[in-house]
Write a protein that binds this DNA or RNA. Structure first.
Lengths: 210, 210
DNA sequence: ACCCTCCTACGTACGCCGTACGTCGCAGGG
DNA sequence: CCCTGCGACGTACGGCGTACGTAGGAGGGT
């Protein structure tokens, strides 16, 4: 193992953790396994990282920091909000196995504020400021968090929240559901994301009129 | 231990699991501990439950089934949607330590369809049917899932997604955030939930006009 | 009355886990 | 030359889920 010659570093350890998380999910991460992957003794990791929880935090921050900057070629605030939402979605889709972990964890302040600031700028363009802008941003975050949880944590092997409609349920008790059973069993995540996003934007526009 | 005389039952085991989850969270659940709590041998549990994952599923379903029916005294579809959203929120707040688990798990079909059917009924009242109603319901679910994740998984000891703004970040790089720093550090979950909910309803109303 | 079957309870053991602690070897400075 | 300090590592403890084997009792058939 060539890598076993390199000295152990916090960076190398976090790297390995991120790779492992992306490949097999957080629950696959263990100190022993990580050490083995690095060709090192288990306890050597503790010279660089105080414990597993911190290590996972560091991995989460590293993934968060990967968020790509993006450029929008438009003056319409709607396009900026759309671009921002798509960027968040892209991050979630690049790291499906890490998303729940990220969503459940306290954001690192730096990356958090970068995102918040962008959100506030976009709402500012739409004419929303101060308290109300914060409320709207939070509603947007909630929507994004929710859809992406549904999209990304939905694939069966990740253990998701999807409904699996055809499991011996007596549908006669649920007439309206029965009518749209096909829709309920189908997921077009692109389309759903777009639909919900436009719904949110429509809501903002409505507030703009007052 | 008086309870150790009772015969072991699936129901008794699931009950104990639910209690433990509510008291200390899913991660505190272990077969050994559960058995000890029931005054039984660890392996005896396996006569009633195939493995821990299924046991946790059963506990999740049991909690889900606790959802209280509610009555709305109004003809306005908005009030029905509000009531439904509040019911979901109440469930989440009654089981904060279980919510992330519930949100991450495949819903039991029965309870799932009950909720879906109510959602579809409410949207039907507003004049939305078929595919578009499904889309709207999913957007609502996303919003609810998101806000409630933020609300319920936010308390520090549960390891949440809240921002904690005052941690040596150079705010001069984030002027808009700096302006509303107080807002960002404050959480009024009642108010935020209501605000986001009205935002969603406003969006639906807008679609109604077309 | 007998036995046979089946179900439940339980003990043991294996292979994982996180990590406290102690030791060893080596690099650097005096 | 030795001393100090630090990184790497082995061992060990107490936890975990669960495969497997056994023992005991309850119920039914004869």
């Amino acid at each position: 193992m060539s890598s076993s010659r390199e000295p152990l570093t916090r960076a190398r350890i976090v790297d390995a953790a991120v790779r492992l998380i992306e490949r097999e999910g957080v629950e696959a991460v263990s100190m022993r396994r990580l050490a083995a992957e690095l060709g090192a003794g288990t306890m050597s990791l503790y010279n660089h990282v105080p414990n597993k929880a911190v290590l996972v935090d560091l991995a989460a921050e590293r993934i968060m920091a990967e968020a790509r900057p993006y450029h929008v070629d438009s003056d319409d605030w709607r396009d900026h909000i759309r671009a921002h939402a798509h960027a968040v979605r892209a991050l979630a889709r690049q790291h499906p196995r890490a998303f729940v972990m990220l969503a459940t964890r306290r954001l690192s302040s730096e990356a958090g504020f970068r995102t918040i600031e962008i959100g506030l700028m976009n709402l500012d363009k739409a004419g929303f400021r101060g308290k109300i802008a914060v409320g709207m941003m939070r509603a947007m975050v909630s929507y994004l968090l929710g859809t992406l949880m549904r999209e990304v944590a939905t694939s069966p092997e990740l253990g998701g929240i999807a409904l699996s409609p055809y499991e011996g349920v007596d549908m006669s008790a649920f007439p309206l559901s029965a009518e749209v059973l096909d829709e309920l069993g189908t997921y077009d995540h692109d389309h759903e994301f777009e639909f919900g996003l436009e719904l949110m934007i429509a809501a903002l526009e409505r507030y703009q009129e007052d």
